[in-house]
Amino acid sequence: MVDVEKHYGDFHALKHVNLDVQHGEVVVVIGPSGSGKSTLCRTINRLETITSGTITIDGKELPAEGAELAALRSDVGMVFQSFNLFSHKTILENVTLGPIKVRKLSRAQAEEQAMTLLERVGVAHQADKYPAQLSGGQQQRVAIARALAMKPKVMLFDEPTSALDPEMINEVLDVMVELAKDGMTMVVVTHEMGFARKAANRVVFMSDGEIVEVDEPEEFFTNPKSDRAKDFLSKILTH
């Protein structure tokens, strides 16, 4: 990402953002709410458009709306805060829809692959249920499986645990840690410092639409350089 700017009317949501994520790298984006970290995440697959600047994935610039953009999005997995599973489809159908419609897999192939993924995230026995019949943690794991089914080059996580009850947070984080270990390229917006320490290669700290600090997790948490990061960390780590 080079010189990315984003305005909502008068509000300057992203200011001069530059970020480069390597293959296989796990980048965790943290920062106070309203700092622009979710917006940053959503611009990467153009769910939010940007006002200026460039975003390139694998050397290619993000295309405008259309078939090309759809193709690009299929290579970028996304996991939302509110899961956003398709509520009229079963768990299995949620995971097979993309592969069948976009990757043009046969139903049998797609289902086989989906069952493997559901197995991996631990909800295979729920395959025939509807999203509303599952707990939040289970739904989020299905959402991860849905994204993985597209065999994405990079996965975006937009506060994946913020809408979960505390006891369900770990089951989702465990899946994410596994993914990170397997070498998936990940951009994770989260408040889970434990995850950042355990899985991240780099931590990006954002505040007021700017990237304030980028560092390795250990260094960032023990020795933050900017005042804003110190202030933020002191607020969340005192408890």
């Binding site: 769910l47 999005r73 996304m78 509520s87 829809l97 993309g98 959402a143």
Partner: peptide, 10 residues
């Protein structure tokens, strides 16, 4: 729902 669908590449 629409965002998730678009994110999958539909």
């Amino acid at each position: 729902q629409a965002e998730a669908a678009r994110a999958v590449g539909l």
